[in-house]
């Protein structure tokens, strides 16, 4: 079990997380999280404090993002159906034991940016084929 909170402390949560970090370079994550989104998948996620300060925005037809309305900290990325939530790595109080294992949208990765770790890499086309095979439409972002 890990705990996390935003920068100002208004929103806090408790989560059971995996030890793997998924990195996303899609333009939505870039705009939202300053360039790169580092998500840690959860098995269970509960807001323990400040639910009324939690802002949630629908960022696509299937996903939403949670943040603190007081300080703007990025808190999570969630796909309500079927129910998938990854917390922003930066919001965790302790990141020990976490390792990046996969990088999404690597063809959109900012020039000059490279993690030292070797991970699985998926391009935009591979991500869309993997995550939204039936959509087949113009979504270029997750």
């Amino acid at each position: 079990m890990r705990t996390g909170q935003c920068l100002c402390g208004a929103v806090a949560y408790r989560a059971e997380t995996a030890d793997t970090v998924s990195v996303c370079y899609c333009k939505m994550c870039q705009r939202w999280a300053s360039g790169v989104f580092m998500g840690v998948m959860t098995e269970r996620f509960d807001v323990t404090e400040g639910a009324d300060h939690l802002g949630v925005i629908s960022s696509s037809d299937w996903a939403e993002r949670g943040f603190c309305k007081m300080c703007g900290s990025n808190l999570f990325y969630r796909v309500p159906e079927p129910g998938y939530l990854s917390v922003a790595m930066g919001s965790l109080d302790d990141t020990s034991g976490l390792t990046p294992r996969v990088q999404y949208y690597v063809d959109k990765r900012p020039e000059g940016f490279a993690l030292a770790a070797e991970t699985k890499e998926m391009t935009e086309a591979e991500c869309i084929a993997f995550f939204a095979p039936e959509e087949g439409d113009s979504h270029d972002q997750v």
Binding site: Q5, L7, V21, A33, S34, G35, V36, F37, G90
Partner: peptide, 20 residues
Amino acid sequence: SYGACHCGMCRKFSGGIELG
């Protein structure tokens, strides 16, 4: 050019890695 800040505040604010 851009840079990264690893301070705890930037990591919380930006979700993990602040690039500015």
